[in-house]
Design a protein around this nucleic acid. Structure first.
Length: 433
RNA sequence: GUGGGUGUAGCUCAGUUGGCAGAGCACCGGGUUGUGGCCCCGGGGGUCGAGGGUUCAAAUCCCUUCACUCACCCCA
């Protein structure tokens, strides 16, 4: 007689329940609408890719690839290493090349929405399965493309009512100027080794740029004096960055320059940005979006030299930074209440007819007292209770009770009438109440 | 991966120096033969996160473990 135990969800994985889903759908609908206006088409991508794709695109030595991927071997002959995608840009570029989009029209404007997976330690706003909405512009190396994305983001946050969002902007340089800067920064770090924290020692080995955004006070004091990327940008990168900023200023896109902004994925170059949400209980995970330019990525993934720029929004976090609809979901227009088993079939008949006419209708099972059923109707916030008991069956007419006014329309609803007529009657009652 | 906090009813939480497992809300039923909300009465619900140990006796003390949570790290 042992009670079987429940099976919990996997660590870091969670359910998004209807109430929260309603909020998410609003956020997604707003994004789709705005994407359409900016000429983006949706792309639906696989959730599973070859591990190699991310290793090459995101970077072998990034945390994401080194220790955060859900990676395993498929049971095919080659035992292919596959992974749940930790991000989608690599997939978009893979699809762009594989589908031949690259040949049809070098420029592509694509958006996607869906779950990503990273095996990090869960915390508020950080889940092992999280959702991103993202956009990519392929085949465009001009500053206009970068600026358009940022304008999109500002319009989006405005549209969904995200409060306290801030765009942080930086330029990371390109293949011509970044390596030299990277080396200068590394040398600087080595020269101040004993003043830097343990994390920074590791960063120095793996990704010197990361020194720039260390949060330890002692490190920051040192980093203040470190060389700045902006002073190391080549002429082309400077010109590109200046034009992006000029366009943003023209469109009155508010942003703050953050010369210490670094992005974690290897493929970023030139424009890099992050959207940070202040307050609103996001905790430490307050980056609700991020993106930038990745001009070398297409070539890295085996394609021609094609530029690209894009962003991703963390839907879980955007949801936390935007107000959910305050008023609870409205109840059904009518709740049909069969008082006895004989009334069940007519109840379903009636409900189906009304639903076919577009009304929101619910039906309760028989077997409970009228009192109990009306209690249900009240809790569900139904507008009308449609009562089907012995009297109603005999008369062929349902009693309809208006839950707000407590007014009964006894012998009111002709069960033999066609659906459209029933619906018209119900609509009139609901509208009149 | 590292460090801190918290796990008791569906939810929010009490639970004394170790001594019968509790409250509020929610749910179900009754108070009214077929009329909801408010009120009154009653009821069902718990392996006290899990496993082990100490003890006559453990929700309480000890160890281990899991989950959640906050920060680091990382990132959306």
């Amino acid at each position: 007689m042992s009670k079987s135990s429940t099976i919990p969800a996997v660590r870091g994985f969670r359910d998004v329940l209807p109430e929260e889903c309603a909020h998410w759908q609003r956020l997604e609908a707003a994004a789709r609408d705005l994407f359409a206006r900016y000429g983006f088409g949706e792309i639906r991508l696989p959730i599973l890719e070859r591990t190699e794709l991310f290793a090459r695109a995101v970077g072998e030595t990034t945390d994401i690839v080194e220790k955060e991927m859900f990676s395993f071997r498929d049971r095919d002959k080659e035992e292919t290493a596959v992974a749940l995608r930790p991000e989608a840009t690599a997939s978009v570029v893979r699809a762009y090349l594989e589908s031949g989009l690259v040949h049809r029209d070098r420029q592509a404007r694509l958006f996607y929405a869906g779950p990503m997976f990273r095996r990090e330690r869960p915390q508020r706003g950080r889940y092992r399965q999280f959702y991103q909405i993202g956009a990519e512009v392929l085949g465009r190396d001009d500053a206009l493309a970068d600026a358009e994305l940022l304008v999109w983001l500002v319009r989006y946050f405005d549209q969904v009512g995200a409060r306290g969002t801030r765009i942080e902007l930086n330029s990371l340089g390109d293949a011509a100027c970044r390596p030299a800067y990277r080396e200068r920064l590394r040398q600087f770090g080595l020269a101040h080794l004993d003043a830097l924290c343990g994390d920074c020692h590791r960063r120095l080995q793996r990704n010197p740029l990361r020194l720039l955004d260390c949060k330890v006070a002692d490190c920051r004091a040192v980093i203040e004096r470190a060389p700045v990327m902006r002073d190391s940008l080549c002429a082309a990168c400077t010109a590109h960055f200046d034009e992006v900023r000029l366009l943003l200023d023209q469109e009155r896109v508010p942003y703050v320059l953050n010369l210490r902004l670094v992005r974690g994925l290897d493929y970023y170059c030139r424009t890099a940005f992050e959207i940070v949400a202040e307050g609103e209980g996001l905790g430490a995970q307050n980056a609700i979006g991020g993106g930038g330019r990745y001009d070398g990525l297409v070539a890295m993934l085996g394609g021609p030299e094609v530029a690209g720029v894009g962003f991703a929004l963390g839907l879980d976090r955007v949801a936390m930074a935007t107000p959910a609809a305050k008023d609870a979901a409205p109840g059904p227009a009518a709740l049909v209440l069969p008082l006895e088993p004989r009334a069940v079939a007519p109840a379903l008949r009636l409900a189906t007819q009304l639903r076919d006419e577009g009304l929101v209708v619910a039906v309760e099972p028989a077997g409970r007292s009228l009192k109990a059923l009306l209690g249900v109707a009240n809790r569900r916030r139904a507008r009308l209770a449609v009562i089907l008991g012995p009297d109603e069956l005999a008369a062929g007419r349902a009693t309809v009770r208006d839950l707000a006014s407590s007014a009964d329309r006894r012998q009111a609803l002709d069960l033999g009438a066609p659906g459209a007529e029933l619906a018209r009657w119900v609509r009139a009652e609901v509208g009149a109440s």
